[in-house]
Write a protein that binds this DNA or RNA. Structure first.
Lengths: 100, 100
DNA sequence: TTACAATTTACTTTTAAGTGAAAATTATTT
DNA sequence: AAATAATTTTCACTTAAAAGTAAATTGTAA
């Protein structure tokens, strides 16, 4: 579905892929959990953004962490987050941190 | 109130000091967040236990972390927890980890 | 044997997480 | 330019789960 050639995906597609409401993606953005590229005012999510979001969901629903905790760990550039993270997600995470 | 000479305090006193219900302390214990000394079947909390509990409360109510996240960090012996922790609390935390 | 602490069960409260709908904004088409 | 379409934003609401607690029961030390 998300091949390597295409570099970005609109919010509705991403929401559908993740099985969540697009409003939830706006919600996460408010918390600075993800920061999709903007062309005009439209959002485009990279493949790494999507992997990152999948990882965040895992932290929430498999580990039981709450958003606030995840954000605290992001801000502290914490090893916990990076530890069991797939390589490309780490990459995305680092890009994400670099941007702020 | 909790001077250095006395080494341990019963649950009701601790609850009152922390401004919480004693049931909440049992609740935290269920999550292995604290592990008071048992003499007979009665619980005795050390000064360090109390400091530790205060720190846990700060993480919850000032930082907005949830119990599950705190527990995850404890299990991973995470730097986040220890970072901004007063020295004696770190000590208590390490004793706590040593016990399990 | 009684008084107090621990335990259990099930309940209440609180709040985070998520969402629906309408309004606003920007882009697109004719 | 007006109409239409698409996306974002806002506001208020719902839902679900975590956190906390009450009450009844059990256990046990003194």
């Amino acid at each position: 579905m998300f091949n390597e050639v295409d570099k970005s995906y609109p919010i509705e597609l991403v929401a559908e892929f993740l099985g969540i409401n697009s409003r939830t993606l706006y919600y996460y953005e408010k918390f600075n959990l993800v920061c999709p590229l903007r062309r005009g005012r439209k959002r485009y999510y990279s493949k790494e953004d999507i992997n990152w979001l999948e990882y965040v969901r895992e932290l929430m629903y498999e580990q039981g962490m709450n958003l606030r905790s995840i954000i605290i760990l992001i801000k502290r550039r914490d090893a916990v987050i990076l530890d069991r993270c797939p390589e490309d997600v780490v990459l995305c995470y680092k890009n994400y941190l670099a941007r702020k």
